[in-house]
Measured scan of single mutants.
Amino acid sequence: MQIFVKTLTGKTITLEVEPSDTIENVKAKIQDKEGIPPDQQRSIFAGKQLEDGRTLSDYNIQKESTLHLVLR
């Protein structure tokens, strides 16, 4: 499925993911596309910070959902 990741600069990245993917996985995909190390990424969805060990389905993130990426 496709999800979108919006950065603070307003750029939107499209990722191909599975509901079973962990947040860690997703951060690795963002690193592949953007070169941002996962330890600098904070992902926010529906106002909640997403934890690395959880999966997209844990957070009820579905296709075409938009995550927000904040850098630390």
Rank of each mutant, 00 (worst) to 15 (best):
D32F: 11
N60A: 08
E16M: 13
V17C: 05
L50V: 04
T14E: 07
R42C: 15
L67F: 02
R54T: 05
I61C: 03
Y59Q: 03
E18S: 14
L15A: 01
T9M: 10
L50F: 04
Y59D: 00
H68E: 11
P38H: 12
F4M: 04
I61P: 00
L71M: 11
L71I: 12
K63R: 11
T22A: 02
E16F: 13
S57C: 03
D52L: 06
T9V: 07
L69C: 04
E16G: 05
R72E: 10
G10Q: 03
T14W: 06
F4P: 00
I23Y: 04
L67Q: 00
K63W: 06
K48E: 12
L69G: 01
I44H: 06
P19C: 07
M1G: 02
Q41C: 11
D21Q: 04
R72K: 12
T7W: 12
K6P: 01
R54C: 10
P38F: 15
H68W: 15
I30R: 02
Q62N: 08
Q49S: 10
L50W: 04
V5C: 04
N25Q: 14
V17N: 00
D32T: 11
Q40I: 11
E16Y: 13
V26H: 00
Q41I: 15
T7H: 03
I3P: 01
K29L: 10
E18M: 14
T66G: 02
R54K: 13
I30L: 08
G47V: 03
Q31H: 14
I23C: 02
K63L: 05
K48G: 07
D39E: 12
L69E: 05
G47W: 07
V5D: 01
D52M: 05
Q41N: 08
T14S: 10
I23H: 01
I44E: 08
D52C: 07
K11M: 09
D58R: 00
Q41D: 06
R54Q: 08
I61L: 03
F4R: 05
R42V: 15
S43T: 15
T66F: 07
R72W: 13
Q41L: 15
I36D: 06
F4Q: 03
F45S: 04
K48C: 10
T12L: 13
K29G: 01
I23D: 01
Q49W: 15
D58T: 05
R72F: 12
A28V: 10
A28S: 11
Q2S: 09
Q31I: 08
E24M: 12
G35I: 03
Q31Y: 15
E34R: 05
V17K: 00
F4S: 03
Q41F: 15
G10C: 07
T12M: 12
Q41H: 10
N60K: 09
E16N: 11
L69T: 02
Q62E: 10
A28I: 13
I30D: 01
K63S: 14
D32V: 12
K33G: 06
K11I: 09
I3C: 03
Q40K: 11
T14V: 13
P19M: 09
G35F: 05
L67C: 01
L8V: 11
I44K: 03
I3S: 00
P38E: 09
F45I: 06
N25M: 15
T12W: 08
I23P: 01
G47R: 03
S65A: 11
N25E: 12
K6T: 09
T9S: 13
T7R: 05
I3H: 01
I44F: 15
G35V: 03
T55E: 01
N25S: 14
F45N: 03
A28C: 06
L56W: 00
T55L: 07
R54G: 06
K63A: 15
R42A: 14
S20T: 12
D58S: 14
E64Q: 11
I13A: 02
K11S: 07
T55G: 00
E24Q: 12
G47P: 04
R42E: 13
Q49V: 15
S20N: 12
T9A: 11
N25K: 14
L67Y: 00
L56E: 01
L56F: 03
Y59F: 04
L15F: 04
V70C: 08
L71S: 09
T7Y: 12
V5K: 00
G35Q: 06
Q2A: 07
G10L: 02
D21R: 01
L69M: 12
N60M: 07
F4N: 03
A28L: 14
E64N: 15
E64D: 14
S57T: 06
G10W: 05
R54W: 09
Q62L: 10
G35S: 06
R72Y: 12
I13T: 01
T66V: 13
D39G: 11
V5M: 04
K6Q: 08
S65C: 04
K6H: 14
Q31T: 10
V5Q: 00
Q40H: 13
K11R: 12
D32W: 09
E34C: 15
H68T: 13
K29H: 04
T14F: 07
P19D: 06
I61V: 08
G10M: 03
D58C: 04
T7A: 04
T22Y: 05
L8E: 12
Q40P: 06
D58Q: 07
T9K: 11
Q62Y: 08
I36H: 08
S57A: 14
E64P: 01
D21V: 03
Y59K: 00
R54L: 11
V70F: 11
P19K: 07
Y59N: 01
I61M: 04
V17G: 01
A46R: 14
T22F: 05
Q31D: 06
E64H: 14
F45D: 03
M1Q: 00
D52K: 02
A46W: 14
T66Y: 08
Q62H: 11
S43K: 06
E24G: 13
I36F: 11
T55R: 09
L67I: 14
N25L: 13
D52P: 08
V70D: 04
Q2L: 14
S65I: 04
K63G: 12
T22R: 06
E18Q: 12
K48Y: 10
D32Q: 14
K29T: 03
E34A: 13
R54I: 06
Q40T: 10
R42W: 15
S43M: 15
T7P: 02
T66H: 14
T12F: 10
Q40W: 11
G10P: 00
G35N: 07
H68D: 06
Q62S: 10
G10I: 04
L15W: 00
S57Q: 12
E51R: 07
I23G: 00
Q40G: 10
T12A: 03
R42H: 15
K48R: 12
T55F: 04
V26N: 01
S57P: 01
V5S: 00
Q41P: 07
D58Y: 15
Q31F: 15
P38K: 14
K63I: 05
Q49H: 13
K27S: 05
T55C: 02
L69K: 01
K11D: 07
K6A: 06
T14I: 13
K63F: 06
L15D: 00
L15K: 00
T22V: 04
I44G: 04
D52S: 07
V5I: 13
A46S: 08
D21L: 04
L67N: 00
P38V: 15
E34G: 08
D58N: 04
E18R: 14
P19V: 07
L50A: 02
K63Q: 12
R72C: 09
L67W: 01
E24W: 15
G35Y: 04
D39A: 11
D32M: 13
Q40E: 11
I23V: 09
F45R: 04
V17F: 04
A28E: 09
P38R: 13
Q40Y: 09
E24K: 11
M1V: 04
G35C: 06
E24L: 14
N60C: 05
E64F: 15
G53E: 09
Q49A: 12
I44L: 13
H68G: 04
T9W: 14
